[in-house]
């Protein structure tokens, strides 16, 4: 069988709906994971409103807002990279994927600055500053570090995945009629953005 015939056969046999269904099952588990964390956080917030209110004042709203704008913009560049590949504009798609990676890095760098500033103020689990506070005050920061840290880890994984997609696009494995991998990566990236929107609202805005 010639290479061209093999490619056609592969395209014919590829189950795009099945591939995307697999990704949606994974996203379902992600929704349950973060949803569960949001639930527990909400219950404690409801139980200890005063301490959670005081603790939330320590978070930097400006950095939080900036990071939200960054992730929303990266969601746009991600979806535009898919539109570009649909229209056979490989270089434009690569450019948008590259922008998405850069924005993802900006998000992580901002997060590092934010955490570094908090560590500098001795706001971390087990620090003397926090040990002098009430348990519910400490609990707020435990939630904050675990949930934003887990979301940050997802951003890093997303950056790695998009880097692979860039390579696949550059090599010609992702084309205008075979871009399901890129689309799945986009779905994952958008979900990470949605999770951040809720983290931003619950931790930074409701004080």
């Amino acid at each position: 069988m010639s290479t061209e015939t093999q490619v056609h056969a592969e395209e014919h046999n590829r189950d795009n709906t099945g591939i995307r269904l697999g990704l949606w099952v994974f996203l379902f588990t992600e929704l349950i994971l973060f949803g569960g964390l949001f639930l527990v956080y909400s219950v404690y917030r409801y139980t200890y409103p005063a301490d959670f209110h005081l603790a939330a004042q320590e978070l930097n709203k400006i950095i939080g807002t900036f990071n939200t704008v960054i992730l929303l913009t990266s969601s746009l560049t991600m979806v535009l990279s898919i539109v570009a590949i649909q229209r056979s504009k490989r270089k434009l798609s690569l450019f948008f994927q590259f922008l998405t990676i850069i924005l993802g890095f900006f998000f992580i760098i901002n997060k590092c600055f934010e955490w570094a500033a908090m560590f500098h103020q001795s706001i971390y689990s087990g620090s003397e500053t926090l040990l002098n506070e009430s348990k519910s005050y400490i609990l707020f920061f435990d939630f904050y570090y675990v949930m934003t840290g887990l979301q940050g880890l997802h951003v890093i994984i997303g950056i790695v995945l998009i880097s692979f997609m860039m390579r696949f696009t550059a090599k010609g494995y992702i084309t205008h009629n075979n871009y399901v991998k890129l689309e799945n990566t986009g779905l994952y990236w958008h979900l990470v953005a949605i999770i951040w929107i809720f983290l931003f609202s619950l931790f930074y805005l409701i004080t």
Partner: peptide
């Protein structure tokens, strides 16, 4: 962005079940 409106109903079902459960 995630095309849930125009995509297969099965995907919408996944998100709806997760939302309902939560």
């Amino acid at each position: 962005f995630m095309h849930l409106r125009s995509d297969s109903r099965v995907f919408l079902l996944f998100v709806s079940v997760a939302g309902l459960f939560l």
